[in-house]
């Protein structure tokens, strides 16, 4: 059994006959017409995002997939204001409508109560609520001890914490990522092993208890066991620590197994955002975008070729159940 049952959207819970989970949606992410060009107006100009409109509900375990260079990282960097919307920058001039054409649509992005299109938004307060783990996060380690490094973000965001409070928070964060607090706190982060270093770096982000945690390929470059452990860590975090998780990933099995919904990016455009159950029915389309499909989807297709059609939700568990069901029917 999957120890971490999917956290469906409230509606889905109700549909499955469970009591609906009552949530007050406060940290919803709403992007509308998000467009971003790197180095505009130069020969290096790259349109990395093209009119992306997407809503991520609070409580989701949201996946983002897409071919390399499709704009995934650019999108997630918007979520905590590392990339600013044009209208939130100094010297911004509203584009004028040309004669006889409708006024150009302004991109907008809201994360909870924060309006990222507004210049007056408190971006530091936003970053406290939206934690971001970059690809190869161990590259951000710098302090002399793991303790200092993990405490760095906390001290930045909350200036007047007492020493005990800091210690308690750092201890909790290091422990939830699976490090032995007493053993690592006085060790240099550079003396840790690769996997431990990544955990320490993640602890340094989640130490402020962000409500939304964004991770850009958190399992990149790890061995299969390391990957599995990171995914387990993410489930732990989703259960007890951060309400919403947004994860960029190239691993379709991971997406199929864990996500409530996944968005597909291609050349800066949003192709679709669907629950894995529906998404991986479109295998052909995904393959044509240069993406992989989960093993379960491949197996379903292979079975379908042999004349056995199994409808499943593309988790390993769901697949096994569906296959056993199909077999039972035949008997």
């Amino acid at each position: 059994m999957n120890p971490f049952p999917l956290r469906g959207l409230p509606l889905k819970g109700a549909a499955r006959g469970r009591p609906p989970i009552i949530t007050i949606k406060t940290m919803q992410i709403t992007a509308e017409h998000l467009t971003y060009v790197y180095n505009p107006g130069s020969p290096f100009a790259v349109k990395a995002l093209d009119d992306v409109s997407l809503t991520i509900e609070e409580g989701e375990f949201f996946g983002i997939i897409g071919h390399t260079g499709s704009g995934k990282s650019t999108f997630v960097k918007h979520l905590n204001g590392l990339i600013r919307l044009p209208s939130s920058q100094k010297h911004y001039k509203k584009p004028k409508a040309k004669k006889g054409q409708p006024a150009p649509v302004e991109p907008s992005l809201k994360v909870g109560e924060f309006d990222l299109a507004d210049r007056k938004t408190d971006f530091r307060a936003l970053r406290k609520k939206v934690g971001m783990v970059f690809q190869y996060p161990e590259a951000q380690l710098f302090a002399e001890t793991v303790f200092d490094d993990v405490a760095f973000g906390l001290k930045n965001f909350e200036k007047d914490l007492k020493a005990e409070e800091i210690e308690a928070a750092v201890k909790a964060a290091t422990e939830i990522v699976g490090l032995d607090y007493a053993a690592v706190k006085d060790v240099s982060p550079f003396d840790l092993s690769g996997g431990q270093r990544r955990r320490a770096a993640i602890a340094g982000v989640i130490v402020t208890k962000p409500e939304i945690l964004v991770l850009d390929e958190p399992a990149a470059g790890l061995d299969p066991l390391g990957k599995k452990e990171i995914m387990e860590l993410l489930h732990r975090l989703h259960r007890d620590w951060c309400r919403t998780i947004v994860i960029v990933s190239h691993d379709m099995d991971e997406i199929a197994e864990n996500c409530t919904r996944a968005a597909v990016f291609s050349e800066g455009k949003l192709v679709c955002a669907l629950p894995p159950k529906e998404l991986f029915l479109k295998s052909e389309e995904l393959l044509s975008l240069g993406l992989d499909i989960p093993l379960t989807a491949k197996l379903c297709a292979a079975l379908a070729k042999r004349g056995v059609s199994v409808g499943c939700d593309f988790t390993v568990d769901g697949f096994v159940r569906a296959v056993l069901g199909a077999k039972g029917e035949k008997r």
Binding site: L82, R124, F134, Q140, G153, G204
Partner: peptide
């Protein structure tokens, strides 16, 4: 740029 982004995300001013 990448490291700056990572530290800014951790609230570095």
């Amino acid at each position: 740029e990448r490291i700056r982004d990572a530290q800014k995300a951790r609230g570095a001013a």
